[in-house]
Amino acid sequence: MKTAVFYDVKNLVVEETPMPEVPKEKILMKIDTCAICTWEQRVYTGVKKVSYPFIGGHEIAGEIVKIGEAVEGDWKQGDKIVFGTNLACGHCYYCRIGEEQNCLNFDHSKQQPGLPYRGMGGLSEYLIVDPSDIFSYQNVAPEEASLTEPLSCVLHSVETAKVDFGDYVLIIGAGIMGMLHLQLAQKRGAIVIVSDPNEKRLELAKSLGATHVINPVKEDLTEKILAYTENLGAQIIFNTTPISGLIPGLLESLSNTGTMILYSSYYPDEPVGLKFDHIHKTGQQIKGTANSNKRDFIRASRLISQGIVDVKPFITKIYPLSQIEPAFEEAVNTESFRIVIDFEQERSEESC
């Protein structure tokens, strides 16, 4: 089978690796598509350090091709599935209480069974998966289904914030994660405002239902937020950007008793100064959220499968596996939403 392997910064090689044997309690998944997450983009550019060789990829969709003899349940060959990456340890306190997204031993470099190198493994044609980590999908193309994982993380974020009917919600950043926050916050009855310096993305946010959009380069963000929120400020702010320096200023746009969610990873993770008496007096909260759990994943799969959340606008381009380096080069272009690797395209060509 073909596998894309990181050997260094901006050094990705598609090579032949052995087809894994299927343990009796596992399932063999044929991967159809793998979207290139920001995490893998940072590996590609060297911002995120990993030990080489490394197999990335975790936003994946495919189908069941073989089922181990000891697997229980109603899974069958040919089922369309998405894979909720099994990077949590499964046995720490947080895993045991259903909060595996905050696992004490969360490991992006976990060794996946049947693969020759460490990593999440989605940039490989086939993957051994545990039945507890897969979820069915229907009605949509695999490239859409592969965005289940990012949607599951956003779902966890929106629920952490406790978005409710009539809330004023400010989303900082109109990338794919900001746009998914927009859709989910709307569906919980929020009045959503999106801020981004990219005018094209603001136009898309408006078309997707944002009540207001703000270009912070051209307009005063705090002034606009107060004008749009009855002079109260946003009750919830989602910072989906990796820019920690924005956080102190954003507190001025947050209402009393409001909540700011730090959704993105921060690279570099530089300290920032906060006025703690301000937080004390206003009752504001700052919360972090990362990853997702099984409960998030199964619901995200349903939302995409049933067309409740439309992810098609966020699929910028689809590349075959043989063009993975050009795909990554486009993925790190800030104009892109998601670039998707299509394994099935070359399989079809080879069978002709």
Results as ranks from 00 to 15, higher is better:
residue 286 I to F: 03
residue 78 G to V: 03
residue 265 S to M: 07
residue 153 C to G: 09
residue 182 L to G: 09
residue 278 H to I: 03
residue 155 L to C: 10
residue 64 I to A: 09
residue 244 S to H: 00
residue 341 I to L: 10
residue 120 M to W: 02
residue 212 H to D: 13
residue 8 D to S: 14
residue 186 Q to G: 14
residue 349 E to H: 12
residue 91 H to Y: 13
residue 274 L to S: 03
residue 148 T to H: 11
residue 228 Y to M: 10
residue 250 L to I: 08
residue 29 M to S: 10
residue 291 N to E: 15
residue 82 V to P: 00
residue 1 M to C: 06
residue 1 M to W: 08
residue 47 V to F: 00
residue 48 K to C: 04
residue 326 P to H: 13
residue 69 E to K: 12
residue 345 Q to E: 13
residue 80 K to T: 01
residue 155 L to T: 12
residue 243 I to N: 14
residue 77 Q to L: 10
residue 159 E to Q: 15
residue 326 P to F: 13
residue 204 L to H: 07
residue 284 Q to S: 12
residue 339 I to C: 10
residue 109 S to T: 13
residue 156 H to Q: 14
residue 264 S to W: 09
residue 110 K to M: 14
residue 48 K to Q: 14
residue 195 S to T: 06
residue 14 V to H: 02
residue 160 T to R: 15
residue 304 I to N: 10
residue 162 K to L: 08
residue 175 G to I: 06
residue 70 A to H: 01
residue 141 A to L: 15
residue 134 I to V: 12
residue 171 I to T: 06
residue 79 D to S: 11
residue 349 E to M: 12
residue 119 G to K: 01
residue 68 G to L: 03
residue 328 F to S: 03
residue 228 Y to C: 01
residue 207 S to E: 15
residue 29 M to A: 15
residue 105 N to F: 08
residue 163 V to I: 12
residue 283 G to K: 10
residue 238 F to A: 00
residue 289 T to M: 04
residue 5 V to I: 15
residue 202 L to S: 11
residue 37 C to W: 04
residue 344 E to S: 14
residue 10 K to Y: 03
residue 103 C to S: 08
residue 314 F to A: 13
residue 263 Y to T: 09
residue 336 S to A: 14
residue 306 Q to S: 06
residue 292 S to F: 14
residue 287 K to M: 12
residue 352 C to H: 10
residue 269 D to Y: 11
residue 81 I to G: 01
residue 103 C to E: 10
residue 151 L to K: 03
residue 103 C to M: 09
residue 168 Y to I: 01
residue 285 Q to K: 10
residue 12 L to G: 01
residue 340 V to C: 07
residue 164 D to W: 15
residue 14 V to A: 02
residue 1 M to I: 06
residue 7 Y to G: 02
residue 212 H to W: 15
residue 89 C to Q: 05
residue 237 I to N: 11
residue 111 Q to S: 09
residue 331 A to S: 15
residue 221 L to H: 04
residue 249 G to F: 02
residue 20 P to Q: 04
residue 23 P to K: 00
residue 69 E to F: 01
residue 180 L to G: 04
residue 157 S to R: 08
residue 5 V to P: 05
residue 7 Y to T: 04
residue 45 T to R: 03
residue 277 D to G: 05
residue 284 Q to V: 06
residue 68 G to W: 00
residue 232 L to D: 00
residue 287 K to I: 04
residue 155 L to V: 11
residue 13 V to S: 05
residue 25 E to T: 07
residue 79 D to M: 12
residue 108 H to P: 11
residue 259 T to A: 02
residue 318 I to L: 03
residue 289 T to E: 10
residue 86 N to P: 05
residue 158 V to T: 11
residue 152 S to Y: 04
residue 15 E to V: 03
residue 240 T to I: 11
residue 95 C to D: 14
residue 5 V to M: 09
residue 46 G to P: 01
residue 60 I to R: 00
residue 274 L to A: 05
residue 338 R to G: 00
residue 301 S to T: 08
residue 265 S to N: 09
residue 93 Y to T: 06
